[in-house]
Design a protein around this nucleic acid. Sequence first.
DNA 1: CGACAGACATTGCGGCTGCATTGCGCGGCG
DNA 2: CGCCGCGCAATGCAGCCGCAATGTCTGTCG
Lengths: 222, 222
Amino acid sequence: MRILLVEDEMNMAAALTAALSRHDIVVDHARTLEIAEEACRSGVHDAVLLDRKLPDGDGLSLIPVLRREQAGLPIIVLSALGSPDHRVAGLDHGADDYLAKPFSTDELLARLRAVMRRPAQIGESMVNVGQLRFNLTERQADVAGEPLDLTRRELLALEILVRRAGRTVPRSALEEAVYGYDDEIASNSLDAHISRLRRKLSTAGVEIHAIRGLGYLLRTAS
Amino acid sequence: MRILLVEDEMNMAAALTAALSRHDIVVDHARTLEIAEEACRSGVHDAVLLDRKLPDGDGLSLIPVLRREQAGLPIIVLSALGSPDHRVAGLDHGADDYLAKPFSTDELLARLRAVMRRPAQIGESMVNVGQLRFNLTERQADVAGEPLDLTRRELLALEILVRRAGRTVPRSALEEAVYGYDDEIASNSLDAHISRLRRKLSTAGVEIHAIRGLGYLLRTAS
DNA sequence: CGACAGACATTGCGGCTGCATTGCGCGGCG
DNA sequence: CGCCGCGCAATGCAGCCGCAATGTCTGTCG
């Protein structure tokens, strides 16, 4: 892990660098806002520790700059200004955490770990078939980025077809997915839904094949 | 915004609920770990406030459970156990932040905002859709610089629609965001709010689309 | 090889469900 | 005491969906 420490007081900086180094954290040290801005441009840092009182201004003013350059880069403010008001100000300027001096090194490390843990992206299960992209969690279908306007029954049918793309889906399975168990169906309305689905998928590069006597099968257009 | 408060002390819970409600945050209250676990399963919460001393165990033990159920759900621990050691323990158990009692309500709100910014932090806590600009931290909506005059319910509805712009928001999710669990709704008043929202957004270049049988969808006007 | 039957495709229609809109009255807050 | 937000209900409306009629295709049997 490599962090950028923005701090003008040399004793403080040295002590922090030593403490963090003992935990195998690489520390780059910047004494001014200007140097810090320059340093962060390299994009090698995993987090920023930011002092407030700096020779060329309040550290908080750096936060919007960092956010623009390196969106998502965790920022922890370290400051002797520790009143609730000061903390609120720091957090509302966009900091991820605010730690008042003096603090324990262990707590700093823990807060660093906490802030670094941030999940990259909650796994959204997406299925791609041809130009068709189906988001299983959101229950939404796109064709080349354009959202498809599907009705509820069409969505339910497409979902199960997509989940088993390339394999034949028995007609009975489709009926159970689209209607309930209870909801009896006494016509060919499932076929009707498939028909309308096909039209809406005409530009999606996929085909819904009918497997006579068995069911349907979704696959990329040949 | 809707949060889950896990706290057994009723005075504390009532005070917090009142304070947060004043900032238009919907609070669901759980007195025990068991109830909390059950409540979080609904997946409607944006964050969790977690006490440590609870009738059925240490609140920290809930964190792994929440992480498994709802990865990415921000968790802030609130505890009278405020020593650095305690904080480190809390953070290393997976909490996103640790606030020692007593704390100022303003700081809690600021830390909530900080922790909520995270997922959407790519870019800013400002969402633009069409001419509509929604400030998630300030909770304010502008159309071409002109601030929109929205009521509380309208704001809550618009917030969740904006947070998930371009994706269908289930009707149930909207109801839970705008009203609480307990607040039963026995009419189409949600529809009424949507209707009035639409009127106020008429010049915003966005549309609130109704997805029949599913919910609503906000997107730029075609 | 032709004819028929069964299965799927497509499309129009009507009913019904669920959404849109508006007005009213209550209750809370100033 | 007046205002405003909100829940509620009534009315109007649109679109989804079930249904059936008709067309197409395929596989089978005489």
